[in-house]
Amino acid sequence: MVEKNWSRQLPLHLMVMPALLLVLVFSYGPIAGLVIAFQKYSIVKGIFGSEWIGFDNFRYVFSLPGTLDVIGNTVLIAFMKIVAGLIAPIATALLLNEIRIESIKRGVQTLIYLPHFLSWIILGSILIDILSPSSGIVNQMLGLIGIKPIFFLGDNQWFPYLLVLSDVWKEFGFSTIVYLAALTSINPTLYEAAVVDGAGRWKQTLHVTLPGMLPIIILMSTLSLGNVLNAGFDQVFNLYSPQVYESGDIIDTFVYRLGLVDAQYAVATAMGMFKSAVSVLFVSVSYYLAYRLANYRIF
């Protein structure tokens, strides 16, 4: 029986093999490559020929004048995105739930899901056009009510908030899906009972709808904890410029410039590794909390 079982399960091992090899090379390879953070790495000498220098790269990167500001920017932008990215879709789902005309509901959903599927190249290009201080339509409209043109993408006062706002704009619609799914699973008899007890629409929302959504709200909040250092490379990279490094430069863009523009591979890797280490910590905590609070498992 054991023998037969082996030949029977052989195809399963074969099915896993190609993916296993690819992941070994392209996911675990880079993880092993993190050792260059502890080397005076040079492309010519390679990993095996480069000199080991302990934590010097970490010391160096944290001695750079801008590093702490970059970490501060990252945490601030990411935190605002997490909070806004939770509140906006929950509110939208609750409001959509109040709409009785099915065609309008579906129409609104179609429109608000769309930006999620466009890349930050497309959306970045659109934002650059409409926010332009000289010809952008946003500043034209502000001009109508007497406001002087604002260079949203070049002004440190505005830039981080613009990042948060445009990120919410891209994602809030798509994020409503999980909450709307949760709403459909609320037992209708609860509403009937609430009506019998004299509850109006507001009371029903407060005492039936929100409690019904609570598990998924808790789940999404805990899972989003893992993003404390993810301020959004794709977005920032396509919207920022040296004028707004002060308020908008984040760890990922900083690592990119250290690595690819200045060719300081080892220093950039050290900074990246710092981010990964902190992120792994937060992600682990978030999944543990999601498991404990919402009984969430990945598989």
Partner: peptide, 27 residues
């Protein structure tokens, strides 16, 4: 499917840890 759990963790771990941008490029 003998080893299924090991295989699964091997893949799922990569959701949580990655080598970052420079080692990815070098590989």
């Amino acid at each position: 499917f003998f080893g299924r759990t090991w295989y699964a963790w091997f893949f799922v771990l990569t959701i949580f840890i990655n080598g970052g941008f420079i080692p990815w490029y070098l590989v």
